[in-house]
Amino acid sequence: MRFAVAVFPGSNCDVDAYRALHDVLGRDVEYLWYRETDLSGFDGVILPGGFSYGDYLRPGAIARFAPLMEAVVRFAGRGGMVLGICNGFQLLTEAGLLPGALLRNRDLTFLCDTVPVRVENADTAFTRCCQNGQVLRLPIAHGDGNYAVDAATLAVMEQRGQVILRYCAPDGTVDEQHNPNGSVANIAGIINGQGNVAGMMPHPERAAEELLGGTNGLFILQSMVQELERRQHEASRC
């Protein structure tokens, strides 16, 4: 099992993602520079947080045209697993791999905190190590995390279980008081209709070791690992 961690000019969470997957979970991981075009041999892709291309125009708008992203779009189209975290989530919406867009935070301030999020759908490749309704404490660090999507698309997403994480109170209550950035329906993370591409503003890779304040992020990363292990097992039986 091999993971690719994308590196764009301005990425700053690539090392965190590498460490969580390689040092904590013991997986084979390789950095891929934005000019790369070949994802053959990789099973999962992480688009990390940061400020790709300085967030000029808007977050992810320039990185979306990087050669590596053309390969990621093809990879996702073949069913490959892709996780976009923070700037990676913004990039996935810019690339059309996820619906909606990430706007400026409601209060127009950069947010850096650890917040509770509730697992809305534990039956996905990115959340199967969780339980429905489970509350995870995960770090956030963003200025453009206000998730927006039109009402019709949101209704379809809700019906299909594409909302996987919501900002909430410590007891799991979802309300506007515990919506840090103004995201519609308190959305913190979503998946695509096929279930192989996920985006989230919270940083699971920054919550993978007790030394750093907690390991709740491993529920997300380990879910991804287990899904890839399942796929490998199924492939070996053919």
Rank of each mutant, 00 (worst) to 15 (best):
M1W: 05
A4E: 08
V7Q: 15
G10V: 10
S11D: 14
S11W: 08
N12T: 14
V15L: 10
A20R: 02
Y31M: 07
E36T: 10
E36W: 03
G41T: 06
F42A: 02
F42G: 03
L47P: 00
G54M: 01
G54S: 13
D55W: 04
L57Q: 06
L57N: 07
A61M: 07
I62N: 14
I62P: 15
A63D: 14
F65D: 15
A66H: 11
A66N: 13
M69G: 10
A71W: 05
A71R: 09
V72D: 05
R78M: 08
G79K: 07
M81R: 12
I85F: 12
A101R: 13
L103T: 01
R104K: 11
R106E: 06
D107R: 09
T114W: 14
V115D: 09
R118T: 12
N121L: 04
D123F: 03
T124H: 00
T124Q: 05
T124W: 00
F126W: 05
R128T: 05
C130D: 08
Q134T: 14
V135S: 10
A141E: 08
G143M: 06
D144W: 11
G145F: 11
V149Q: 06
T153H: 00
M157Y: 01
E158V: 08
V163M: 04
R166I: 14
Y167R: 12
Y167S: 11
A169W: 15
D171L: 10
G172H: 03
E176Q: 14
N181Y: 00
I190F: 02
I191E: 00
N192L: 03
Q194S: 08
N196E: 13
G199T: 07
P204A: 02
R206C: 07
E209Q: 11
L212S: 04
G214W: 09
T215P: 07
N216T: 01
N216K: 03
N216I: 03
L218C: 08
F219D: 03
L221Q: 10
Q222D: 07
S223M: 11
M224Q: 08
V225T: 07
Q226V: 09
E227L: 05
E227F: 13
E229N: 14
R230M: 08
S236D: 10
